[in-house]
């Protein structure tokens, strides 16, 4: 059996990525809209509704405070959906992964290709939303244009966590736990809707351990005029977690599909 640490082949991974791009190019209209309206509704409800009562947070108008965070959450939702149901479907229902693994593509290439794709899809959603909030005039700094590579990084991080979970669960029902106990709480408590700097220290510590918190900070920094050190620090946090978790889906899928 080949070692758990075999490095992926990038050309092989990109073949998987290209397959997904081909499928997406047929369905993007229907696929883009729901996930795009979702953050938009939150922006309207919170930013324009609640924002009427909460005028400013740390000197920033409330709408402008939450808008960049919603780019981050768009990324989180897109990558998570892709690597939860879509990946499980390909793994257990259509057995597409089996057919791919019977070609010269190995598990580590398949995982890399799937993660790169989920990251790509996340960037598409996050960037689309960034364009929308820019059009609403909710982005203050031109540095926001530098956001997409960071959205990709965040997308890769959520994709890796998602695929790690998917590769370990026996049934699709377990996604309920993933979304209700992990993704939704992050969305609510990840620092999109309120800042953490005035909350008790323990709350800040808990938030520090969640990936969305860091991606929200990166997006907000870039949208409001960045502190380079804060951007780099939070981005590094995401990169380290992604790298640490990468081998989990590789090992689990190898055990599951080619044992």
């Amino acid at each position: 059996m080949t070692g758990a640490l075999s490095l992926p082949s990038l050309p092989a991974a990109l073949r998987v990525w290209r397959r997904n791009l081909r499928v997406f190019s047929k369905i993007w209209r229907g696929a883009l809209l729901p996930l795009f309206f979702d953050p938009l509704f939150y922006l309207v409800a919170m930013g324009f509704g609640l924002g009427t009562y909460i005028a400013h947070i740390n000197g920033v108008p409330y709408r402008e405070f939450i808008a960049p965070g919603l780019c981050a959450s768009a990324v989180m939702w897109a990558a998570s959906f892709e690597m939860a149901w879509n990946a499980f479907f390909k793994m257990e229902e259509t057995r597409l992964y089996d057919s791919i693994l019977a070609t010269p593509i190995e598990v580590e290439d398949l995982v890399t290709g799937e993660l790169l794709w989920a990251g790509t899809r996340a960037v598409i959603y996050g960037t689309t939303f960034l364009i929308v909030i820019s059009a609403f005039g909710l982005v203050e700094s031109g540095w926001a244009a530098a956001m997409p590579p960071f959205l990709l990084l965040g997308g890769l991080c959520f994709a890796t966590i998602g695929l790690a979970y998917t590769s370990l669960i026996p049934k699709m029902d377990y996604f309920t736990f993933y979304f209700t106990l992990f993704i939704t709480p992050m969305f609510l408590f990840g620092g999109i809707f309120f800042p953490y700097d005035k909350l008790p220290e323990w709350a800040q510590v808990v938030a520090w351990f969640t990936p969305l918190y860091h991606l929200v900070l990166v997006c907000r920094e870039l949208a409001t005029g960045p502190d380079a050190a804060a951007v780099a620090g939070n981005a590094a946090w995401l990169a380290v977690l992604t790298a640490l978790l990468f081998s989990v889906p590789v090992v689990a899928l190898r055990r599951r599909l080619v044992a």
Partner: peptide, 16 residues
């Protein structure tokens, strides 16, 4: 695998 062809028992064609 580069030199093999595989016809599995279950249909795992790409339905998309």
């Amino acid at each position: 695998k580069a030199r093999l062809g595989v016809v599995p028992q279950e249909d795992n064609l790409d339905r998309e």
